[in-house]
Design a protein around this nucleic acid. Structure first.
Lengths: 141, 141
DNA sequence: TATAACTCTACTAGTTTGGTAGAGTTTATT
DNA sequence: AATAAACTCTACCAAACTAGTAGAGTTATA
């Protein structure tokens, strides 16, 4: 399951995606409208900023806003930021690779083969889910 | 990521699958060959027994063995036993369904649509991965 | 009847999750 | 220059979960 952080991040991004022409939006507004504890959301948006997914403006009239084109942000990227690898086994991840201790020969491992395929399917599916597409599909502005 | 329990369970089942004609196999043998802490494995096999995935025989000459046909056991079932739902969001699970608090209209939710599709793909893939197929694919007896 | 082997309950250290609290910094406006 | 709006950063915390360990109990076979 996705962590709350990842889910909240996606919710906030879709929210900002719907309003990408409105300039900076207050954290308090996002928190209220999306039902997310404000202080918790602060940490999430901060992380997204550090990862260059969005940007912020301080001081009066400030807030958070998207800068990258919506088509360049995808759910795979967001989930990885908060929850780490999408794969179900460490021996089929790219960035977090770790051998199974019990495995004699990885190339021959039937279990690994199943989870490698699944990982590839999952990554493809979630990379294809760009913020642009999700916002378009989404009817809840 | 899969929990160690789920991974160990799959490892043990593939191990037993390779040896399904050999009669009862000792927990200590599985633990040693598969590099799993024995006491930990005991709890795992006990659970699999309760879920009727395999059976055991007590006393001298006892051990664990598979009774169901290998083609009727699949990885989706095993993972669900130890790690719960395969879906990434509670609003797209079948058995653990829970509405998102922040969601106004589920039918219109773009996020949900992405994760519903992903769940369906994942379940299909893992149901298709029967113990029979995994054992056949697996070269590490 | 001895003992091999599974069964069951209880405990535990460490990590992760989902937060909360509060002080600090920056910037627009007056 | 002062003020207040708004993001930034560090620290803390309770509860749940993970990956085990320990040990007594039960059952069946030789």
């Amino acid at each position: 399951m996705l962590s709350k952080k990842a889910k909240y991040a996606i919710n906030a991004l879709v929210y900002l995606g719907h309003r990408s022409d409105d300039g900076p939006i207050l954290i308090s507004k996002i928190a209220e409208d999306e039902n997310i504890p404000q202080k918790f959301l602060e940490a999430i948006l901060l992380k997204l900023r550090k990862e260059q997914i969005l940007n912020s403006k301080k001081g009066r009239g400030g807030g958070y806003f998207l800068t990258r084109d919506l088509s360049t942000i995808n759910l795979a990227e967001i989930i990885r930021i908060f929850d780490g690898p999408l794969a179900l086994l460490p021996c089929v991840t790219h960035d977090y690779y770790k051998k199974c201790e019990e495995c004699k020969d990885e190339e021959k491992c039937g279990i690994r083969m199943v989870f490698l395929n699944l990982r590839n399917i999952t990554v493809k599916h979630l990379k294809d889910a760009t913020l642009e597409k999700v916002v378009l599909m989404d009817g809840n502005k």
